[in-house]
Simulated scan of single mutants.
Amino acid sequence: MKILITGGAGFVGSSLAIALKTNYPSYEIYCLDNLKRKGSELNVARISQLGIHYVHGDIRNKEDFDSLPAVDTVIEASAEPSVLAGLDGTPDYLINTNLFGTVNCLNYALKHRAGFIFLSTSRVYPIKTIETLNFTEAETRFELTDDQPVKGVSSKGIAEDFPLDGARSLYGTTKLASELIIQEYNEFYGLKTVINRCGVITGPWQMGKVDQGVMVLWIAKHYWQQQLGYFGYGGTGKQTRDMLHVADLYRLIDWQLHNLEKVNGEILNAGGGNESSTSLQELTKICQEVTGKTIPIKQVAETRTADIRLYITDNSKVTRLTGWAPQIGVRQIVEDIAEWLDQNHVTLEPILK
């Protein structure tokens, strides 16, 4: 099998490439990446030493696809992933990458009649609607209830039929727009596709920042004993997310790669679910236990732009169709990332500290 992974030197793309090459040594894998994200240059050596082909290119440039060979499947993992992207300036790079770049990927896939696996995001769901959901305030976190004002949400989390009307961030909008175009290619060009609306993906080799990669950021700040803050919602740190280890995501992508016809045309939520969820307050406690370090955490009551109180993925549909469910819990995720920091602290310190 020949596979192209766009964003192939990024956190998710390189993780998928390495796992695929390790499990299927005979597969020919190409990773296309423009290396814009700080730290992605470290992954070029990691993938190249396994015999994965790194191609320096940009999905915004359709000419960069011309030198690529025909492949059987495209895994579209490239993105400007920040939920704040475009909010403090021009959105051009965001739109050109996340929307027009996806169109270039689709046209390349169509040219070679390749399957198309798209990594979308839970951020396609509107912020204001999520913020009006019914919840309870427990001792250390916020929790969804079963009694809700809209469809597609319960105590299990948010499902694929959650309403899409409303604003969601420019980042979420570009991903949703890409989803709509993918559905057109599936219906009218016969391209085999699947869309995965991923929750918070994390794990070793993610270069975490405030606006994207909060799990790694939280652990790194503990590791190097720097200050953090609980921002918004009263400054209590009770805002809650589910966390998906990239190794769990790989198991889903692996299944889809080899069974694409069984989920052709589907849109699937994929996240950690309630079983792998944490509030910031709970995450702080686990980080203290795993790293043995306690750091100052300031409390800021004011809620920031595009923040949400509570998001949990309802994985019912993806589990029903594929049998997949996440297996790695929050504590193991923290332990994996802490071990990675320990083993690579010299290299990572200039990036993450």
Rank of each mutant, 00 (worst) to 15 (best):
M1N: 12
K2R: 14
G10V: 08
S15M: 08
K21F: 09
N23F: 10
N23P: 07
Y24A: 04
Y24N: 06
P25C: 03
I29S: 13
L35D: 05
K36D: 12
R37M: 01
K38Y: 05
K38R: 15
E41F: 04
L42Q: 10
N43P: 04
V44W: 07
I52Y: 02
H53D: 08
H56R: 10
G57A: 08
D64R: 07
F65I: 00
F65D: 02
A70W: 00
V71M: 04
T73M: 08
V74T: 07
A77Y: 09
P81E: 00
V83K: 08
V83W: 08
V83E: 04
A85D: 14
L87A: 15
D92K: 15
D92S: 13
N98C: 05
N98G: 11
L99T: 07
G101Q: 03
V103A: 05
V103M: 03
N107R: 11
Y108H: 05
Y108F: 15
A109H: 06
A109T: 02
H112N: 05
A114C: 11
I117N: 06
F118C: 02
S122E: 06
T129E: 01
E131R: 09
N134T: 02
T136F: 12
E137Y: 14
A138P: 06
T140D: 10
F142Q: 03
F142E: 01
E143M: 13
T145N: 10
P149E: 04
S155P: 10
L164T: 14
A167S: 10
A167I: 04
L170K: 08
Y171C: 03
K175H: 06
I181F: 13
Y189S: 15
L191T: 12
K192R: 15
V194M: 13
R197M: 09
T202R: 13
T202C: 11
G203D: 13
G203V: 15
K209T: 14
D211E: 15
G213I: 00
G213K: 03
V214L: 11
V214H: 10
M215N: 15
H222V: 01
Y223A: 09
Y223E: 05
Y223M: 01
W224A: 01
Q225G: 03
G229R: 15
G234Y: 05
G234F: 03
G235M: 07
T236A: 08
T236F: 12
M243E: 09
V246Y: 12
A247G: 02
L249K: 01
Y250C: 00
R251K: 13
Q256L: 13
Q256S: 10
L260T: 08
L260H: 10
E261N: 13
K262H: 04
K262T: 14
E275A: 14
E275Q: 14
T278V: 07
Q281N: 07
E282Y: 05
T284F: 15
C287D: 02
V290F: 13
V290H: 11
V290R: 03
T291R: 02
K293I: 07
I295P: 05
Q299E: 08
A301W: 09
T303E: 12
R304P: 15
R304N: 09
D307R: 03
D307E: 06
I308S: 01
R309W: 04
S316F: 04
K317Q: 07
V318Q: 07
V318E: 01
T319L: 07
L321K: 14
T322C: 10
G323C: 06
G323R: 03
Q327S: 09
Q332H: 11
V334F: 08
L341D: 00
D342Y: 02
T347N: 11
L348C: 03
